[in-house]
Amino acid sequence: MSTESNNSAADRLPPRERREALAFLLPVALFLGGLVLVPVLGTLLDSLHRDVTFLPRSFIGLENYRALSADPAFWASVRFTLVFVLVSVPLQVVLGLLIALVLNEGFAGRALLRACVLIPWAVPAAVSGRVFELIYNYSYGAANWLIQLVHPGAGPVNWLGTELGALAAVVVADTYKTTPFAALLLLAGLSAIPEDLYGQARIDRATFLQRFFRITLPLLKPVLVVTLIFRTIDALRVFDVIFVLTGGGPGGATSALSIYGFRYYAAGDFGYASAVSVILFFISLTLVVGYASLGGFGREAR
């Protein structure tokens, strides 16, 4: 897609400048190659080996992948991870968009509010996970305290005790933390939309909704797609919030793929854990390519 246009642009350069251009690109190529390509290929290679600390390393082809596909716990992890992405990403992006729309309006104290909204994003996930642990705690958590305040006599709720409850708890904790990030990206996109477009729309007596759907949304689309890409990749490899809050429980109901793979890494089974990483990588890649074509990035470059 975009490489075609790059090539043609490079072809137009005189040979000397072309060489210089390539020299300038070299550090980036080395950087990306060394820090992205090599590790990815290395993990791919590891995933084809039996690499356990207590056994000799040996090449076993796709055996790790076969074992993965036969493990019901792996499929439960895949299912949970996808459900988590499908529930949390739209929620976070829609909420983020609403916050961004509000923060894009001019009002007193806007700068202060903009800074405040970012605070949850600045808190380390492990810390906000602990905070939510205190909210959901059965014996002395804030959520049960609130329920009993509103509804005296109501028994405490074991928030993390069911599959649905644990999923909801994790989604809420993750949404609290990452919505500001979505809002920030979208706010940047909103402020790039020229103000006169709205002025003209008002002259044409377009309603608020018409302005939103005809101007804001189409012009925000590239940023929206970038936000979706960021949030989707992040949600696919969700780890810290779950690790702190549920540890994958109850009964493995919230065991995201990253948690599943991590347990094998931590036990010294590097080959099998690499296979999990590779699968996670390809799921991410597929979704990103899908988003990119949705966002029409290739057409833009032309």
Binding site: A73, G161, T162, E163, G248, G249, P250, G251, G252, A253, S255, R263, A267
Partner: peptide
Amino acid sequence: EIAQRHLNAALAGRV
């Protein structure tokens, strides 16, 4: 790890 997951699922009443 395997045993923890299944025992905990039984305690949660999932199986």
